[in-house]
């Protein structure tokens, strides 16, 4: 933009605007030593806001300010209101903001702006002015999913970006959008098996967002998810994300943990010599070179024993003890408290 270097005061097309400095009455506290460029641009924004002008040049000005300070929420807000007021095509705005979004992906406002645009595009499909093209809202949403994937390639755990993706899917709730999500999660996890954001997203897609057409056979879905998470645990037995996911499936579907006992057991002991040619698809064994035992597995098995109650609780306390003293010592106070609780439960029974 040419305006970046030339102060607004020297641009004839801004001559009619009265710039308004920020009011500082008393000695300012933690003042920011603004650059002249930022000071100049925000003086003009305050001037514009005072008169309520909504025009093309306001879009230039707000874009300029956003580039200097993407957290300036009023610049974003005023920009959005201006877009609507002058009926600027919102799909064009989306594309225009792509670069800014990637550059400032850690700023909430960037994503909130896209969310407002997408909401308006869906709600006002009949309004010719909203969109420049004839693309349907779900086509736009699909493009948006691709854009998000591109952003996540830059920062795979960006919280705002993932939140926006989840919002977009839930908001449009279109089968054609949901369809490709598991493949997307897969590609993210193939890249980094410990990406908890991707694991969370999978849980959101499979369980939290409702049952869609083609997913009515819940037993099949459950089998698929168990296989998926077991294979991932087999690959990296100390990955907290996959253990949390496994627990999540069981809790959500109210399945007792004991269903998984035979799978979990080999992970709770130091390397057992499992013949590698013996491939158990149902219960895949720990991969070669895995660091065993896995604290996540020990904790899980202890939960199974605790659930069984009675004398099994003694077995659970042995496991907690091994976590406290050896395998997860940073949480030893927690494991000690679990032991104490377990033993108390036995005493109450007897």
């Amino acid at each position: 933009m040419s305006s970046v270097s030339v102060p607004y005061a020297e641009q004839p097309q801004w001559a009619d605007v009265v710039p308004l400095p920020q009011y500082e009455g008393v000695e300012p506290l933690a003042p920011i030593f603004y650059t002249n460029e930022y000071k100049d641009a925000t003086d003009y924004l305050r001037g514009i806001v005072k008169t309520g002008e909504k025009s093309q040049r306001v879009l230039d000005l707000t874009k300029h300010i956003i580039q200097l300070n993407p957290a300036h929420y009023t610049a974003w807000q005023y920009r959005y209101e201006t877009l609507l007021a002058i009926k600027s095509p919102l799909d064009v705005e989306l594309e225009l903001m792509d670069e800014i979004a990637i550059k400032h992906m850690k700023t909430y406002q960037v994503w909130h702006h896209r969310r407002l645009l997408m909401t308006h595009l869906l709600r006002n499909t009949d309004e010719a002015s909203t969109s420049s093209s004839s693309r349907s809202p779900s086509q736009l949403a699909s493009t948006e999913l691709t854009f998000i994937a591109r952003t996540l390639a830059e920062d795979a755990k960006n919280y705002h970006t993932w939140s926006y993706r989840q919002w977009l899917l839930a908001f449009f709730n279109d089968d054609s959008l949901w369809d490709r999500e598991l493949d997307f999660v897969d590609s993210m996890l193939n890249h980094d098996i410990r990406n908890n954001s991707a694991w969370h997203h999978r849980f959101f897609v499979v369980f939290q967002s409702g049952v869609r057409e083609g997913e009515k056979d819940r037993d099949r879905i459950l089998r698929r998810e168990f296989t998926y998470v077991k294979q991932n645990i087999s690959l990296a037995p100390n990955n907290a994300s996959s253990w949390n996911y496994l627990r999540g499936i069981l809790d959500y579907n109210k399945i007792p943990y004991s269903r998984l006992t035979s799978f979990v057991q080999p992970y709770t002991v130091p390397h057992a010599d499992v013949p590698s040619d013996l491939v158990d698809l149902e219960d895949p064994p720990p991969s070669r070179g895995a660091q065993l035992p896995s604290p996540g597995a020990i904790e899980f098995l202890a939960d199974v024993y605790e659930e069984e109650g009675g004398n099994s609780i003694l077995k659970a306390t042995e496991l907690w003890k091994s976590l406290a003293s050896e395998h997860d010592t940073i949480r030893r106070r927690y494991w000690n408290s679990r032991m104490k609780e377990g033993l108390r439960a036995i005493q109450v029974k007897s």
């Binding site: 890249h191 980094d192 098996i193 410990r194 690959l235 990296a236 037995p237 100390n238 990955n239 907290a240 991969s287 070669r288 070179g289 895995a290 660091q291 604290p295 395998h327 997860d328 010592t329 940073i330």
Partner: peptide, 9 residues
Amino acid sequence: SSGGDDDGG
């Protein structure tokens, strides 16, 4: 001390 693994990733 925890979380060491095996998958290279």
